[in-house]
Design a protein around this nucleic acid. Sequence first.
DNA 1: TGATGCTTTACGGGAACCCGTAAAAATCAG
DNA 2: CTGATTTTTACGGGTTCCCGTAAAGCATCA
Lengths: 221, 221
Amino acid sequence: MFKKILIAEDHQSSNISVQKTLQDLTIDNADYVYYCDHAFSWLKNAIRDQDPYEVLITDLSFEEDNTIQQITNGIDLIKATRAIQPDLKVIVFSVESRPSIIDDLFKVHGIDGYVRKARHDADHLKEALRAVYNHKSYQPSDVKQSIRDKNSYEFTTVDIAIVSLLYQGELQKNIPQCLKRRNIKPSSLSSVEKRLNLMKETLGFTKNEQLAVYCKEKGLI
Amino acid sequence: MFKKILIAEDHQSSNISVQKTLQDLTIDNADYVYYCDHAFSWLKNAIRDQDPYEVLITDLSFEEDNTIQQITNGIDLIKATRAIQPDLKVIVFSVESRPSIIDDLFKVHGIDGYVRKARHDADHLKEALRAVYNHKSYQPSDVKQSIRDKNSYEFTTVDIAIVSLLYQGELQKNIPQCLKRRNIKPSSLSSVEKRLNLMKETLGFTKNEQLAVYCKEKGLI
DNA sequence: TGATGCTTTACGGGAACCCGTAAAAATCAG
DNA sequence: CTGATTTTTACGGGTTCCCGTAAAGCATCA
């Protein structure tokens, strides 16, 4: 099993239980920090001392407080880490359940495991560590399930651009110009109207307000 | 210090760390459950056995899974509990940070302490237990702070009703009828327009879509 | 090449919404 | 009760949005 692990997690209670979970796996050399900047320092220092960490277990969202930080969230921490230690195994431990976000973590940021904070998260974390140790990636089944669920409507690039612009306060009649400026293809006012209608009809909405809230909650905009 | 405590928390990792926190306070007789229904059973049985719990520490949101539950969230658990054991001390331990929701817990549901899952939550939980043991209520300072912060705009009953109706898909021109049906006072179309304009102007928005997302995120609708 | 089907665009009438003004109603002080 | 102030309502013209239809663009295939 892994020997040297770093935990980056701002919630004290989560941090404590991750420590305990690692103890159960007889991993004694686990360090824990509450800020991304600290995590990055520890990772750097470990490399300098020629005793690098094998695994980083990190949360995604870190709350701001009065101590100013350079790195403010898990994704930026992962990006920064990749630059100095590309082979570090990364397991993300977060409440995030939106498939689009989790997919990105694997596909764009190349993480090795994802454990969602939920009913059996401590057990899942153990499974994840074992899987990653055996050079497999770990993604719990319920996430894959919700990927399927989510396919109630397949949002295209245009769809997301349109709703984003609306949410930013753009007038509908001005959206064609914005789309043309960004070289997004169907850009006429008719097309914008058509896409909006299709989205609303598919999702059972009648007003743009509902659509905006829906997209915002899903993390699409 | 308290002797007999029940923990209702669906996240295994949070549950573990609450247990550990109670151990630190040398509270050995702490039971823990992962479902509200179980919590309610344990509370009932303890009363039947004439050895009732002194404190309930509970989360607010419990995730659904394949086991169907009667009580599905912390607030309903608190309500049910109040009916069978009104003097039970209740400490809520949740990620919820919206002041309107937390205020309700104290004012409507009469809880004794609130600890937000955050950077020093384990320490705060200890403080809360000590405070409640000394017959004081416990509400961390950062919540009170955010109550003040939130006062960028004071939403009235009408405001919330209007945005809710919009979010439910009601046409703006039909909202006056809805308001009259509910006996909400300024109900003319002009008033609706005026309130909407005031809200948007104060919050720096130009479109209803932005307002709807804002209110939804704040838990106002 | 030209016929065919699909997507995108253009346009126009009507509905909903925005905004300013003014009347009506409610509130309040003296 | 009266007059002044504020709040609420009523109304109208201009803009934006909705929606249906028709034309234009574009790829496919005989």
